[in-house]
């Protein structure tokens, strides 16, 4: 879940029909063609007929063009946008249970307030924290939490939407369509 995308990582925002089995079709395509998924997030959209998948793919195994073309062949895949990092707003969420005995607790809460995170649960020796932000910010946060001792950590994978145009035609989005 690195904050900086590697040079072989691409973000695909994939609009799919909201039907059962769609995730399985997409995941199956990646595995049978040997493509690597780096992270994957699925959620409903404003239109109940569709869901949006934000997939970070590793193109070391296959060129992004081939991956998007194969994805486009899946009947329930409606539209694919490839989001360049500079052209997208992206967020990710993190949940972490960190060791925090009484004497260290204040150090942890200090970090929590710096990163505008939230404490969700407190125990005698540990607390569970939620943070959201750019993947880079979450990387930094988890690095700073590490010395306290991370008991468990989970991240959602990034979700992304295109940046809005400030001026007409300022968007540098590349629509990846079936008919190239």
């Amino acid at each position: 879940m690195g904050g900086e995308l590697g040079s072989t990582h691409h973000i695909l925002s994939v609009l799919v029909e909201n039907r059962f089995g769609v995730l399985s079709r997409v995941a199956g395509l990646f595995s049978r063609r040997g493509y690597n998924i780096y992270s994957l997030a699925v959620s409903p959209t404003e239109d109940e007929r569709f869901s949006r998948m934000t997939i970070v793919v590793d193109t070391e195994s296959a060129p992004i063009e081939q991956i998007t073309k194969q994805l486009n062949k899946l009947v329930p895949v409606v539209k694919i946008l490839e989001l360049a990092e500079a052209d997208a707003v992206e967020r990710e969420m993190l949940l972490a249970t960190v060791k925090a005995s009484a004497e260290l607790r204040s150090h942890v809460t200090e970090l929590v307030s710096i990163f505008e995170a939230k404490i969700l649960d407190v125990g005698h020796e540990a607390m569970t924290i939620m943070a959201s932000g750019t993947p880079g910010k979450l990387d930094a946060f988890s690095e700073l939490l590490a010395p306290f001792g991370i008991v468990e950590l989970q991240r959602t994978g990034r979700i992304a939407l295109p940046k809005l145009a400030r001026r007409p035609k300022a968007r540098r989005l590349r629509a990846v369509s079936g008919g190239s």
Binding site: V16, R49, V75, P76, V78, K79
Partner: peptide, 12 residues
């Protein structure tokens, strides 16, 4: 009802 299925037939 196949919003994601539109094969291209005519060449550019």
């Amino acid at each position: 009802d196949l919003p994601g299925y539109k094969p291209t037939t005519k060449g550019h």
